[in-house]
């Protein structure tokens, strides 16, 4: 179904000047309806599409999950297809924080510092059982779930998750963002 400009409440020059024929541009395009040759979108959708296509992760590998996170960069599970092979070391340049591994209480403060240094919009994936909920380590040393200190968008289970599982989590994050779901800090209304 063709959506016409007037359905958006816009008045094109065709309406204001009914007797004007097709413009030079329309004649060059060679189609009946200009709308069939152009893609129409809103600015938010276009920006979101661009953000998903190059969401750069931060190098935050902690433990065993970090080795599987390195595996998604490798040739078999190539994450460069999604534009994400550029792992930025500086959190100021990163969009996505993949917390991969168990977070001890000593490491919790640096983790929060890194999250604070990231610039909006930013997302967090809790990779693995230890980051999601403390995993098998229900003890004095491990933070029982990284969502106690940072707002998490996607939780990826298993110990360690297969690279394909992590990629599924990343793709679901992309889809959620394309659909308009705001990042977790907005949903939970916490300080960023």
């Amino acid at each position: 179904m063709v959506t016409r400009l007037r359905d958006y409440g816009l008045q094109s020059e065709r309406l204001l000047w009914p007797t004007k024929g097709p413009s030079h541009f329309e004649e060059e395009m060679g189609v009946e309806d200009l709308e069939q040759a152009l893609g129409l979108t809103t600015l938010e959708k276009a920006v979101r599409w661009a953000q998903t296509k190059s969401m750069w992760p931060d190098t935050f590998g902690l433990a065993c999950c970090a080795i599987e996170m390195m595996a998604i960069v490798s040739a078999r599970y190539d994450i460069a297809r999604f534009g994400m092979e550029a792992f930025r070391s500086s959190p100021r340049q990163a969009d996505l924080l993949i917390v991969s591994g168990r977070v001890s209480h000593k490491m919790a403060a640096p983790l929060r510092q890194i999250y604070d240094q990231m610039v909006e919009p930013k997302w967090v994936i809790a990779m693995g059982a230890c980051a999601s909920s403390g995993g098998m380590f229900n003890n004095y040393a491990i933070l029982q779930g990284v969502d106690r200190i940072v707002p998490v968008d996607i939780y990826v289970p298993f110990c360690p998750p297969r690279p394909e599982a992590l990629m599924e989590g990343i793709i679901r994050l992309h889809e959620a963002h394309l659909a308009g779901v705001p990042p977790a800090y907005e949903r939970r209304q916490v300080a960023t």
């Binding site: 001890s104 640096p110 003890n139 491990i142």
Partner: peptide, 8 residues
């Protein structure tokens, strides 16, 4: 300085 991954 180590101990950032002390898991117990």
């Amino acid at each position: 300085v180590i101990g950032y991954l002390h898991t117990g």
